[in-house]
Structure formats: C-alpha cells, structure tokens
Amino acid sequence: MKMLEIKNLHASIEGKEILRGINLTVNAGEVHAIMGPNGAGKSTLSNVLTGREGYEITQGEVIYKGQNLLELEPEERARRGVFLAFQYPVEIPGVSNIYLLKAALNAIRKHQGLEELDAIDFLTLVRSKMALVKMDEQFLHRSVNEGFSGGEKKRNEILQMALLEPQLAIMDETDSGLDIDALKTVSEGVNALRSPERSFVMITHYQRLLDYIVPDFVHVLSEGRIVKSGDKELAKELEKSGYSWVHDAPEPEGQPA
C-alpha cells in the first residue's frame, strides 16, 4: 500500500526555489532515509510535508493515503496520522507536558470517532510509553521542553510519537545534538514503533543515525532534487566519500514509481 507519494514537488520560500522536482514513493512499513548536505532542501521538505507556513508550492503534488496532503491544515495532517519529530523541539513555558499529550491524543481520538480517555487510562498509557524512551514521570508535570537537555527534548518527541501512533512519521535531524547514549535510547524507541502499517521518513545529514535505525531505502537530496537512491549501503558510501560528488551527479532520471 502506498503511504506517501511525492510527485514533481517544487517549493519556494520568498521567491527562491528550494525544492526543484522531488519524486518519492513511500510504502506502508518502509523506512526511508533522506540524506544530503546543508542547503539541499531537507528541512524545507519536512516543513512542506507537515504544513508549516511560508512556503509556496509552485508545482507538483503530495498524496498521503489517497488524499491531497498539501491542502490540509497542519492539525488535519496530524489527526490523519502524520507526525513530525522536530529538529529543534520548541519550549513552551506554561503548558505542561501532560496537558499537551492529553490534548494531542484527544484531538486525534476525536477525529477517529473515539471517546476521550479518562484520567486513569490516559496515565497508564502514558507511563507505558515513557518506559519505552526511558523518561522519568517528573517530565510529565514540567512545561513542554522547558529546561530539557537536547537528549531529553528528542526523547520527548519520540514519547509524543509513541503516544500518538502516527502512520507516517517524518523525523527531521533526529540525531542532531544527541550523545551516543541518547541516540541509542531514541533509536530503540523508534525501532519499537516500526511496524508493517507505519512508515518513516528520516531526514539526516549524517549516516550515524542509520547505524541504529536501519533504513530500507536511502535517497540523496541535492539542490532540491533526489539525485541518487539506493539501499542502506548508499549511506555508508556517503559516509566515506562525503557529499562533494553529488554536485557533479547527472540530472536525476526520476524515481521509479
């Protein structure tokens, strides 16, 4: 089953074209890594997919589970199962983690036509998910990400993902700012969520993350296009030779559907 189809996607910010014809198909259960040097358009891609304002789509389309993703508001995407794990999770003083988790889960459950969870069921559920990412319960009662270390913020993202059980998770530079222990914990959390019904798009500059979360496909993004696709071996190649060669790569022949 096709989870996500990106067809000839062009996107600009302030008149400057960043994405210049992206083609990508992600099937249910697959993990895709999108790698590329700085400025290749990685963050733009994740922002466009999750609906951040400020981008203009000039050509192409994105189909998510048979729907036109780009015409949905960010919250509608979330409620339909798209999740973005942020590169820089924002701090929200005054909003407790538990409030956020509950509001987010209930928004999604409501969309699915389910009842809100009562306090006890909710806590039981959250606790089980916290164990997955080795988070202490005190984090529930602190303001969202406020005063969290880099690793704690990323674990908090994975906690939200685990609770909301998305069908398509987009992970933006999840390994940035993580030491090796935190990277392991986060990766274990993600691996536990892998399933035949769930797809992942991991956007990353470094190969390191892919040692822990092994992708089915690796794509190289450069100057707004996917210039090379392969399996996990491609990532290792990149690690060895760096990104310098991608600029000399021929025009992409287009992603096979």
Partner: peptide, 28 residues
C-alpha cells in the same frame, strides 16, 4: 510565538485552541 503555534498544530490542536492555550500559558 509562531514556532510554538506550529508545534501545537502539528500535534493535532486546531489553531484557535492552540492560540488560546498559548495565551493561557502566558498568563498562567
């Protein structure tokens, strides 16, 4: 804060609720 607003919306909160929540968080 637009980043906070986008974050909350990306977690499924509609825009009006997200704005109200951030307003309340400011006053809390």
């Amino acid at each position: 804060n637009e980043d906070q607003l986008f974050f909350l919306r990306s977690r499924g909160l509609d825009e009006v609720s997200a704005r109200s929540l951030l307003t309340f968080a400011f006053a809390v």
